[in-house]
């Protein structure tokens, strides 16, 4: 049979092709282009090969930021995932209580990120902030602008307050989707609450929790606005995460080449880790027992 061709089909694909090109491919290729050149100004550029990659990979400040970033994302996942699940388990199943808790949970998610940073910066200020002044009045010295550990505590509190609701909402949706018969069967089988959680609720939530984990990992790894507003990366460099450092390099120092190389490495790390998480979670609960 002859292969039938009609080139007009390309016109139907064209809009999507253009959108993807402008939103993803062209910016990404621009970054690749920058990462291989030394740019002095408009029209003045020199091809330097992988020089910037070598420089960036041996940058000690970047190593520190990367370690900080991993600690931060690790803590975020360790705290937010279990906490979100616990909140979802405790939420009312129906009635006005369910609606109320859903609205309450959604509130932090509706606030612009830089506003969240501002809220917490004021909230934790040791002189006028409700939290900061309150805790100092209790005799505990607390100042997130001076003490690195206080800065981290503040940052984590803000992050958990801001994003745990997302995990909780996803987990709640997963829980509500479990048919009632599972719980009835478990009661008849004499299962304890822990066994119900372990053998019914957790396995049935796997899909939504995978999504929650990926979203929380990626977002926390890319965090910028909130710490930028809250601490500006300080005190010192103690809360300078990858994106904050990247902006310092790119905008502050106008080192577009190294910044581009840095961006690509950053992107690859996130891509690799997301893929790993996804594979692991997909394989949990498969295979022969």
């Amino acid at each position: 049979m002859d292969k039938w061709e009609d080139n007009r089909a390309w016109f139907l694909v064209l809009p999507v092709f253009i959108i993807v090109a402008f939103s993803a491919i062209i910016p990404l290729m621009t970054v690749v282009n920058y990462s291989l050149q030394d740019i002095f100004g408009p029209g003045q550029r020199v091809f330097v090969g992988v020089e910037w990659f070598k420089e960036v990979l041996s940058d000690k400040r970047l190593h520190e930021a990367l370690v900080r970033q991993f600690i931060f994302s690790g803590l975020v996942l360790l705290i937010e995932m279990p906490l979100g699940i616990i909140i979802a388990l405790m939420m009312p199943k129906k009635g006005w209580g369910a609606s109320l808790s859903l609205v309450m949970l959604a509130l932090p998610l509706l606030i612009p990120w830089n506003v969240i940073g501002t809220i917490w910066m004021i909230f934790t200020r040791p002189d006028i902030g409700l939290f900061g002044a309150g805790i100092n009045a209790l005799g505990i010295a607390f100042d997130h602008t001076a003490s690195p550990s206080d800065a981290w505590v503040t940052l984590m509190l803000m992050e958990v307050w801001h994003w745990t609701p997302l995990v909780a909402l996803l987990a709640y949706a997963g829980l509500r989707a479990i048919p009632e018969a599972y719980f009835q069967a478990a009661r008849i089988d004499g299962a304890s609450a822990w066994a119900i959680f372990k053998y019914i609720q957790l396995p049935k939530m796997r899909g939504v929790l995978t999504i929650a984990l990926l979203l929380r990992f990626m977002d926390s790894f890319l965090i910028y606005a909130e710490p930028f507003v809250l601490t500006g990366g300080g005190p010192g460099n103690t809360t300078t995460f990858l994106s904050i450092y990247l902006v310092k390099v790119a905008v502050g120092q106008f080192d577009l080449g190294p910044a581009a190389a840095f961006s690509i490495i950053y992107f690859l790390i996130i891509l690799l880790l997301s893929w790993l998480f996804y594979q692991v979670l997909q394989n949990v609960g498969k295979g022969e027992a």
Partner: peptide, 11 residues
Amino acid sequence: QVFQFPVLYDT
């Protein structure tokens, strides 16, 4: 009790 659709502990 046996329900309308099979209720199993999947894992």
